[in-house]
Computed example of a mutant assay.
Amino acid sequence: MTATAIYAAGAVCWRVVDGRMMVLVIHRTVHGDVTIPKGKVDPGETLPQTAVREIKEETGLTVALGVPLGVSNYPLSGNRTKIVHYWAAEVSDDAVRHSTFVPNGEVAALEWVTIKKARSYLTFTSDVEILDAFAELVDGGVTRTFSLVVLRHAKAMARSDWKKSDATRPLTERGVQQASTIVDTISAWHPKRITTSTATRCVTTVTPLSAASGIELKRTDNLSQDLFEEGKADIRSVIGKRVRSRKTAVICSHGPVLGDILREIALATGTPTGAYISDAASLEPGAFSVVHLSSTNPSSGIIAIETHSPRV
C-alpha cells in the first residue's frame, strides 16, 4: 500500500432465486448512485477483512468470500488514486433471514437484480467491469466455490538456536504475533476444517484460528517436514480428502512441503501444473495462498489463486 492511494474492498454478492442468478446492488443515500457494496480499509485491516466488514455494515449480510474478481483504479482529487479489490460472495438464505439492514444515512435501499439489469443500474463503469468478471464465472458454471488455504507456519526459532527435536521448535515472538494477526484475514473465507502438521511451530500457528472459529485441529504427520524429508509423507491422501469434502479448509505446513501440496491440489483437480504452482508455494513465514475450486465440479480445475502476506 502507498501513501498516495486510498484502498478499499468489496464484493459482488449473489444468490440464486427461483433458478435465476441475482446480484445485490445498493442505492446510496448521499451520493444518489447505485454501486456494488464496498468501502475503505480501516487502519490495521487487510483487504479481505475490509470486504467482509463493509458488506456487513452496508447490507447487514454476513458473507464468506469466494473468487477474487479484480481490482478497480480511479483518480481522486489531490492527485490520489482509489484502488478497490473485489471478490465474489455467495449470500445464503440464512444470511438473508438474519440481515440487520435498515435504510440509513449511507444506504437508502438494497435491491436484488439480474446481472443484465445490474449492468443498466450501476452508476460507474468500473463496477460494470467487475460485474462482467463475475458474469464470466456464471457462464463458466463455476460460481459456487470452496477454498483450500495453504498456510506456511509463522516465524519460528532458527534450527541452529534450538537444541531439541526439530519438530518441537517453537515460534518466535514475531511468529506468535503473526499467528494472531492472520486469524481475521483467513476468517474472511469461513474455513470449516483446519489440518496441520504435527510440528509445534505449525500447531501453534493455527491454534489462535482454532480458538476463534471453534474448529478442532486435525494433526497429521503427512504434512510434517520430517516425514517429507524422509520421503514418507502421504500428501496426496491429505489433499484428496480435502478436495472430496468440498469444504473450505486451512492446510498448515512447512516451506519445503508447500510445493508438493500445491502440486497435489492441481493434480487432484485436473489442472495443468506450471510456474504458478511455484509462485503460490513461495511463501514467507505466516503467509498463505488461497486456492479456489468449484464446489459443483472440483475436477474442472483451479479457478484462481491469491496470496496474502502477514502484517507483522
Rank of each mutant, 00 (worst) to 15 (best):
M1S: 14
A5G: 03
C13Y: 07
V16Y: 08
V17E: 02
V17D: 01
R20Q: 09
V23N: 09
H31P: 02
G44Q: 02
E45G: 07
L47P: 03
T50S: 13
V52H: 09
K56M: 10
E58Q: 12
V63I: 11
P68F: 04
P75S: 06
K82M: 14
I83T: 10
H85M: 05
S92I: 02
D93Y: 00
V96Q: 13
G105Y: 05
W112G: 07
K117D: 10
S120K: 10
D127L: 00
V128I: 15
F134W: 07
A135L: 06
A135D: 15
A135G: 03
E136L: 10
E136S: 14
T143A: 14
S147R: 04
S147Q: 15
H153A: 08
R159Y: 09
D161E: 13
K163G: 08
D166I: 04
T168R: 12
G175H: 05
G175S: 07
G175E: 01
V176W: 04
I186C: 07
S187K: 08
A188E: 02
W189P: 01
P191S: 12
P191F: 08
T198P: 12
S213L: 09
G214N: 00
E216L: 09
D221F: 07
L223Y: 03
S224Q: 14
Q225S: 15
E230G: 13
S237W: 09
S237M: 13
K241E: 13
R244K: 14
R244V: 12
K247V: 15
C252A: 13
V257K: 02
R263D: 14
E264V: 06
I265C: 00
P272F: 03
F288Q: 02
S289F: 09
S295V: 03
T296C: 05
S300M: 06
T307R: 07
R311Q: 12
